[in-house]
């Protein structure tokens, strides 16, 4: 591919990506940042944990994005009695009164599956987590004596962070498989809140979703285009040093002079970001640079995704684990505020 067509392809996809954001933004109000992060995850081909309360519009957001990117959308609810095979098949009596086995939500769409939503993943048992995490990593599964490939699947999982009864916390190794944890908050603007409760168009999520233009993206080309983005966006030596400093700061924040109120920082972190996590950070940063029309990384590209990619990966000392959400947010903010670039190397 020559340079001109290469540039045209990048520009063309960028236009589509911005159109997707714009279409979704029309029906999901007050979630601009979340939409940008989800677009980033889609183009970086990373799985996403969603953080937020109930009824904030996570499902509608996902369905809208799926409609815009094309492909199939599947969903399953995490419950305490959910078993791994519930994801793969389900049995029922057919019209002839005979037992029949059909593919479950994970396999039903086959290679067309683009978005799989696992609602309240922490209500499911660890066996289910294990299967899901394996599929996320390998993107294929053997069942019914054949190999199911899910090459275009991106998993979005929601964690119920409020209720802890009958939940199974996702271990750090499993959390690390998710590229991002994106907070979906209730919009802060009163105008947005007002429209959410008074504008009748928000009463029917299905109708709302239909307003999004479909197939803006070609979901089955995203993998190859993601590689194109990664090759296209460069990083300077100064930025690479900066990324390494950030990584070390997640492991030893005290060494960088990071301070948190009421926290003994030197004892806070048991394990910082993993190499996979840092790799995902740079991958998502490159997508952010491309979305902003650049072919080189800037620190702000890293900042745009730093918290969402790093916070859920940090393993804290158990004495601080009860406050991990707040502390992780504070720590990542302090790391960005404290680690200098250019550093004096």
């Amino acid at each position: 591919m020559n340079t001109v067509s290469y540039d045209i392809e990048l520009a063309d996809w960028r236009t589509k990506a911005l159109k997707l954001e714009s279409e979704v933004g029309k029906i999901i109000v007050g979630q601009t940042k979340a939409i940008r992060l989800m677009t980033t995850a889609i183009f970086a081909r990373g799985h996403v944990l969603l953080e937020g309360g109930v009824g904030v519009g996570k499902t509608t957001l996902l369905q809208s994005i799926t409609r815009g990117m094309g492909g199939a959308y599947e969903r399953i609810e995490g419950t305490v009695d959910l078993m791994p095979n519930d994801l793969i098949y389900h049995t029922y009596l057919n019209s002839e009164g005979r037992p029949q086995i059909d593919e479950g939500p994970l396999l039903r769409a086959g290679e067309n599956l683009s978005v799989f939503f696992f609602n309240e993943i922490n209500r499911a048992r660890p066996q289910v987590h294990a299967l899901m995490l394996r599929v996320m990593a390998e993107r294929h599964l053997q069942a019914f004596k054949k190999d199911y490939r899910l090459p275009h699947m991106v998993v979005f999982a929601d964690r119920n962070q409020v209720e802890k009864n009958e939940t199974f916390e996702i271990p750090s190794a499993a959390r690390d498989r998710f590229m991002m944890e994106i907070p979906i908050e209730i919009p802060e603007s009163r105008e947005h809140r007002k429209s959410l409760i008074f504008d009748t168009k928000f009463q029917h999520a299905e109708v709302l979703t239909q307003q999004v233009e479909d197939h803006i993206l070609q979901f089955d080309q995203l993998n190859s285009f993601s590689d194109t983005i990664q090759r296209h966006v460069r990083s300077s030596p100064v930025l690479e040093e900066y990324a390494l400093d950030l990584w070390e700061a997640t492991q030893e924040p005290a060494r960088f002079g990071i301070k948190l109120d009421g926290v003994e920082v030197s004892r806070l972190v048991q394990a910082g970001a993993s190499p996979r996590g840092m790799g995902m950070l740079m991958k998502a940063s490159r997508v952010n640079a491309w979305l902003n029309g650049r072919d080189s990384l800037l620190p702000e590209d890293i900042h745009a995704v730093f918290h969402e990619i790093i916070a859920h990966r940090l393993v804290f000392n158990p004495m601080y684990d009860s406050k991990r959400t707040a502390l992780a947010r504070e720590l990542t903010a302090q790391i960005i505020n404290t680690v200098v670039v250019p550093g004096k190397h």
Binding site: E300, V339, V341, G343
Partner: peptide, 22 residues
């Protein structure tokens, strides 16, 4: 790089935190 480092340090000092373009 050193010159940029000194000026960025000055900006950081006045800002109280790291100061970036944004």
């Amino acid at each position: 790089q050193e010159a940029f480092y000194h000026l960025h340090t000055a900006f950081n000092t006045w800002h109280g935190n790291n100061c970036f373009a944004q």
